[in-house]
Amino acid sequence: MCHSRDAAEQVKAQLAEWLAPRGLVFNEDKTRIVHAETGFDFLGFNVRRYRCGKLLIKPSEAAVRRIRARLREEVRALRGAETLAILRAVNPIVRGWSAYYRTVVSKEVFASLDSYLWQLTYRWALHRHPKKSKHWITSRYFGRFNTAREDKWVFGHRDNGAYLVKFAWTKIVRHQLVKGASSPDDPALTDYWANRRRRSAPLPLDRATMRLLQTQKGRCQCCGQLLLHSDQPPQSPTGWEQWLRTTRKAIKARHIAYQGTKTPDGVQLRLAHASCLRRRKASGNGNSA
């Protein structure tokens, strides 16, 4: 991303010098020097400076092609299956991919993927009911299933109200600038980097639970350990997908629970590991209402 070959080689030499004490070296086959205006792909992102002078990071074209291909394969493989099978298969993929790309310029890509997913589900419905009219199909499978949004074209299940989430529903959260010259290699800043990573993790929870997690800084009321997630966030769309699956299962299985704690102002709800509450109850030290 330098403007001259000499400057680029100088930067490369400086980086090599920084990597050497850490036992790391450049992979010459994978390392190349490019102009910022040309841009480059890295870990599914495209980094490029545009004519307006802004350096923007977006999902790479290759990453978009991969997610479109996966969505297409998943939906086509479920032709003839029940609506809930589509929701179970596709929702984790959408949540995981959008969580990974939520910190970059993804709004247009999210919208285009929602449009593509709508086409896939519509064709799935046509294949499932070849003798039904298009009006019947749209009335049966599409509607305002998510009452919190003014969207009448959400794919869902009429009987239980379950629906397919959309990429665009994931809030874009801009990357937080690192404070000062803080380095991840500085052992004195371990807590700073851990707290920074935890704040960036989007949790698939209701608002009340989110507020409690924020109040408790994500930690159990009893043991003080993290309730749901690790210090290191997932590093890929697939990683986010698996993390979200595990987290939702933990909530559904009630591995975390509400605890009513008595205070001078009444009873306040707090979150704790269900195992911690069981141990506290068994020891006779319970303080729940």
Rank of each mutant, 00 (worst) to 15 (best):
M1Q: 04
C2N: 07
C2T: 06
D6T: 07
D6A: 05
A7G: 02
Q10F: 06
L19A: 11
L19D: 11
A20K: 15
V25F: 12
H35D: 01
H35P: 06
T38F: 09
G39W: 03
L43C: 06
R49F: 03
R51Q: 09
R51S: 10
G53Q: 12
K54D: 11
L55Q: 10
I57S: 10
P59V: 02
V64F: 06
L71G: 12
R72F: 01
E74D: 13
A77R: 15
L78I: 04
L78F: 05
A81T: 03
L84G: 14
L84C: 14
I86F: 01
I86K: 14
L87H: 13
R88M: 05
V94D: 01
G96K: 11
W97E: 07
S98P: 09
S98E: 06
A99E: 09
V105W: 00
V109M: 02
F110Q: 05
S112A: 06
S115I: 10
Y116N: 14
L117I: 03
W118Q: 09
L120G: 09
L120E: 08
Y122P: 09
R123C: 05
H127C: 13
S133A: 11
K134S: 03
W136H: 13
W136S: 09
W136Q: 13
T138S: 04
R140A: 03
G143V: 02
G143Q: 09
N146L: 04
N146F: 00
T147N: 02
E150M: 05
E150G: 03
E150Q: 07
K152C: 00
D159N: 10
D159H: 13
F167R: 07
V173P: 05
V173K: 14
V173D: 09
L177A: 12
L177R: 15
V178L: 12
K179R: 13
A181T: 03
S183G: 04
P184L: 04
P184E: 01
D185L: 12
L189E: 13
T190Q: 15
A194T: 11
R196F: 05
R197H: 14
L203C: 11
P204D: 06
D206I: 09
R207Q: 09
L213Y: 04
L213W: 11
C220V: 05
C223S: 04
L226I: 10
P234C: 01
S236N: 15
S236I: 12
T238M: 10
E241F: 01
T246M: 08
T247F: 02
H255N: 10
H255M: 07
A257I: 10
Q259R: 15
T263R: 15
D265Y: 14
D265F: 13
V267L: 03
V267P: 08
A272F: 04
A272W: 07
H273F: 05
S275R: 15
C276D: 02
R280M: 04
R280Y: 01
A282S: 02
S283Y: 04
N287C: 08
